[in-house]
Amino acid sequence: MRVDAIQNGIVIDHITAGRGMQLYDLLGLKDLDCPVALMMNAVSGKMGRKDIIKIDADIQVDLDVIGYVDPGATVNFIRNGSLVEKRNIEMPKMLTNVIRCKNPRCITSVEQELDHVFRLTDAPNKIYRCIYCETKAK
């Protein structure tokens, strides 16, 4: 299966197979009006299988979201058909309004205007906790 190369935009590569859809949702890509390709289970020399997202428009994506969903992913920035920057993504220390606290006892459950903020508390185990109630993100 082939997807055409893009002229100006972003390629999110080396996404762990199966996480592409979650990333597509959390990045809000369904709301874009430019061409977006989500390829799942592509063959990869390094990973065996991987997911890839191509966005054919010069837009800003929230790298923290990518770092949260899949810190092993790489982001390639394409200009005029050429790769101008390749970035390895790390887990962000803080996540703001990416995921929501599910604890019904948390202050965010009743105060709608508060940001939902999570802090990385255990990097090796990839654990984020709500800064208000310390509930673990699921």
Partner: peptide
């Protein structure tokens, strides 16, 4: 004192 967790932090 507040019944919701994190309210004093806010």
């Amino acid at each position: 004192r507040h019944p919701k967790e994190g309210a004093p932090y806010v």
